[in-house]
């Protein structure tokens, strides 16, 4: 557990070490001896064929060293990592291979690049995998606390869109918001809400064999591995949620599903890639959707979670009428 100042004070970051099991013995031993790699705020470890292994932690990077010399990843290391991450079950990861990542026990993610395998012009998977990115998932308890008064009103949660560039912590933030919404917050007179989480890429809940690896509160139902557009329609019908949460919306079908959720009276909690409100408004589909007032609040992160910069929050309903209005 590590404490730091970020989007609030005295946050507690919790991460497990289950990702260590996918490392072959040679690398595992070295990583275990590296303090940065064993830190709870480790972000990722990058392996590139014949290149030094890089450890990223809180925005800073270091090489993995042995006798003060950088350790380079070999083809056998990369193959061993792939084997261990799939535990001899390649058939179970066909879809993930097409998407370029595998979710590991503990909610961590192994992204990879290599040579594409095509079947009549369509991507079937990847082979000769030579580049890996082990992204370590963590739960930062309390990282949404400062934001909650700005995305709730009249003791209810508002439909909220969280935008940020990759690796700034929007998934960590939405995970925490889901937990808080589900648990409720007596100090703010917020009752616990029934949250249906549509976790298409197993990022928010980090589900492994259907079981969420992160704490998501007592009233959260997780639909894991289901396409967002279909999943959101499904949970509205089947689980009668107060809030529907999903990660990284984008396509026209996602907008259609979000419209359906709103028409059914549920609130939305979702994220999108983007670094500024203007950028979101300029996007076909999403821009119109925002202007129509679909979101009550739009949260734009202004820096990574460790930067300490508070996010900008805009009132979504006013965007169609006038310039963005900060809350």
């Amino acid at each position: 557990m590590v404490k730091y100042r970020g989007w609030g004070d005295d946050l507690q970051s919790v991460s497990n070490k289950l990702w260590l099991h996918v490392l072959p013995p040679r690398l595992k031993k070295l990583v275990e001896e590296t303090a940065d790699a064993m830190s709870p705020d480790l972000e990722e470890i990058r392996f590139r064929i014949q290149k030094p292994v890089i450890i990223k932690r809180a925005g800073k990077e270091r090489f993995l060293l042995r006798d003060r010399e950088p350790v380079c990843a070999q083809a056998a290391d990369l193959e061993a990592v792939m084997d261990l991450s799939m535990r001899g079950s390649l058939y179970a990861f066909e879809e993930e291979l097409k998407n370029g990542f595998v979710t590991l026990p503990g909610g961590h993610r192994l992204g990879f690049c290599g040579r594409a395998v095509l079947d009549q012009g369509r991507l079937r998977g990847l082979k000769q995998i030579r580049f890996l990115n082990l992204r370590v998932a963590k739960q930062v308890f309390g990282c949404g606390d400062a934001l909650i008064p700005r995305i709730t009103a009249n003791r209810r949660w508002l439909s909220t869109l969280v935008a940020s560039p990759p690796r700034w912590g929007k998934t960590t933030l939405i995970r925490e918001l889901v937990r808080k919404a589900s648990e409720g917050d007596p100090a703010r007179y917020l009752a616990g809400a029934d949250v249906s989480l549509v976790d298409e890429r197993s990022e928010i809940a980090g589900s492994y064999l259907g079981e969420p690896q992160f704490e998501l509160g007592p009233r959260t139902d997780v639909l894991d591995g289901c396409p967002k557009s279909e999943g959101m329609m499904m949970v509205v019908r089947s689980m009668a949620p107060d809030i529907v949460a999903a990660d990284e919306i984008g396509g026209e079908r996602d907008m259609e599903a979000l419209r359906h959720v709103l028409l059914c009276g549920a609130k939305i909690l979702t994220t999108v890639h983007g670094s500024a409100l203007e950028e979101l408004l300029a996007r076909p589909g999403l821009g119109d959707f925002i202007r129509q007032g679909a979101f009550d609040r739009i949260v734009v992160l202004r820096g990574p979670w460790y930067s300490g910069l508070p996010p900008a929050v805009y009132q979504g309903k006013s965007l169609g009428l006038a310039a963005a209005e900060p809350v």
Partner: peptide
């Protein structure tokens, strides 16, 4: 388990 459940090998 493998073909229809897509269960990873150890639990299968």
């Amino acid at each position: 388990e493998i073909l229809y459940g897509k269960t990873p090998l150890p639990p299968a």
